[in-house]
Structure formats: structure tokens, C-alpha cells
Computed example of a mutant assay.
Amino acid sequence: MVLSDITIDNLSFSYDNADVLKDISLQFQEPNLTCIIGPNGVGKTTLVKCINKLLKPHQGRVLLDGTDINNISLFEMAKKMAFVPNSVSSIFSMTVAEAVLMGRYPHSGWVTSAEDLQIVEEMISTMHLEDLAERNFRELSAGQTQRVVIARGLAQEPEILILDEPTSNLDVKHQMEIMNFLSNYSKKMGIKVIMVCHDLNITAAFADRIVMMHQGRIFADGTARQVMTAENIREVYDVNARVIDVEGKPHIIMLKD
């Protein structure tokens, strides 16, 4: 089976005439974990929201399987692409299991099948949420909530999974577990996982591909070894760093001025 791919073609976006993204061109064709990094304000979240049609670029196109997403309904896109936001809240009272079940809507609508329930159960187990399945979603901690929305995204069975800093509310142990899971899951299921990250060392340890952004543009794109260099970090983050090898992966040590 040939899975979906994304092409970003000369994409630009502005807020109130302030340029945020400038001439972005990227392709996502391989089933892997791609991490988008860069300082605050460089347009990382804006970029993934343009990919997911939550924002409309002022210039350029996003193509899903060669078709401009402007010509694809959100409902049809949701059958192939899932988005996990950085934070989420619910005005409705629902259990964790019901929240995860919402991920099945693009496939089943409001009619729940035995298959839907089985997939929900699998995703709850995958995210280690069994003890919380009957808890009210609104009563969860930030970290628990984040695991639920990831489970909901996985329940959508997407060919493309987009996440906006999914580990920001998690402790280090759970950050590593989620990153390791997403890296393995992308290859096991043959899907593309694209996520916004902020921790350079977590990214370097788990990402198959890293897209580094600077001033609204793509500054570097490649493997951790290619992207995570002292020169790139100094240019993009304006900090001095030493990059060493730890078990075959670059590890960044920030230096005092």
C-alpha cells in the first residue's frame, strides 16, 4: 500500500503583515520521525498548522498526495492526517475512553463499531492510560491530558501524524518513552510522524530527520549529525555549545559565554 505524502511548495505566512514563514519548501515522503526545531517565534507551530489546514498560507501550497489541500475537505483530510496540539481543553464532561473514541469519528461518524472500541482499547493501552480510562477528561493533569490526546490521534489511524510539542508537559522519563514510541511506531506502521520539538538533546537522540528553522526559513534539514552542529546552534539559537558523540548520537552541551 502506498501511503500519503506531503509537499510544501514555496509557502509563506504572515500575521498582521509580520512575516512568520518565508518561502518554505519541504517534502515528507519517508515513514519516519521528523522533528521541527528552532527558537520561539520562528514559525514552527504556524508551519504545522498550515500543513494541517488550520491556517491558510498567504503564498505557496501544501499538497497532500499531489492535491492542494485547499481542494480537500477537513473531513477527508482527517482520514489521512491527525493533529495533536500542544494543549487542549474540553468544555464537555467525558471519560478518557470517550475522548480517545473521538479519534474514530473521521472513519465511523457517530456510529461506534466493535472495531472502533478495539482500536480505542489498544491506544489506551499503548499510552498506559488503563487506570484512567473511566476518569473525567477535565480532571487530568497536563501530562495525563497530553497522553490522552496522543492516544486520540493514534486512534484516528492516520498515515500522517502531526504533533505540536507533545512532550512539553511530560517529565524526562515520559518524554523519552513517547519519543521512542513515536520513532518505532512510524516505522512499524509505515507512517510519517512530524512533530515540533524544543529539547535539542531529546530530538537528537530520537529523530530520524531534523528540520531546523531560523527567522521563518529552513536553516538546515537532515540527520541529527548533519543538523546538530555547534555552528548551527550558535547561528540559530545565539548560544555557544559543544557537541559530543554519545552512543552514536550528537549530544549538546551548552556553554557559558
Rank of each mutant, 00 (worst) to 15 (best):
L129G: 07
M212R: 05
L129V: 03
I8W: 07
N184C: 02
T7Q: 14
T145Y: 01
S73W: 01
G248F: 09
V227W: 02
N180P: 00
R61Y: 04
V88S: 14
G222D: 03
K256S: 12
A155E: 10
G43I: 00
D208I: 02
A151S: 12
E165I: 09
I244E: 13
S87A: 11
S14Q: 13
V20A: 08
L255Y: 02
G60A: 11
T34A: 05
L64V: 12
I252Y: 01
I72H: 05
S89N: 15
N86M: 04
E115A: 12
G248M: 09
P31R: 07
E130S: 14
L55P: 04
L47A: 08
K44H: 04
F28Y: 09
K188W: 00
S89Y: 10
V100W: 03
P57T: 07
P85C: 08
E98C: 12
A207S: 12
K22A: 00
N17H: 10
D164S: 06
I218Y: 02
V48W: 01
N86W: 00
S125A: 13
D9L: 03
A142R: 03
D116S: 11
G66Q: 06
K56F: 03
L21P: 13
S141P: 09
N70S: 14
I253G: 03
I72R: 05
E122M: 15
S12E: 06
I119D: 06
L55W: 00
E98P: 10
P250R: 08
N169E: 06
V243P: 13
N52Y: 13
A230F: 03
G66P: 06
T126S: 15
S73T: 15
Q118A: 15
A114I: 04
S89C: 04
M1T: 12
V148G: 14
H128A: 15
H174V: 00
L21Y: 09
Q27W: 00
G153N: 04
V246N: 03
D65E: 12
N71T: 05
M254I: 14
G109M: 05
L74M: 12
S186V: 02
R225D: 14
P39A: 11
Q27N: 14
E115Q: 15
P106W: 05
A207D: 07
D68S: 07
P31F: 07
P31W: 09
I162V: 14
K53C: 01
M123W: 01
I51Y: 07
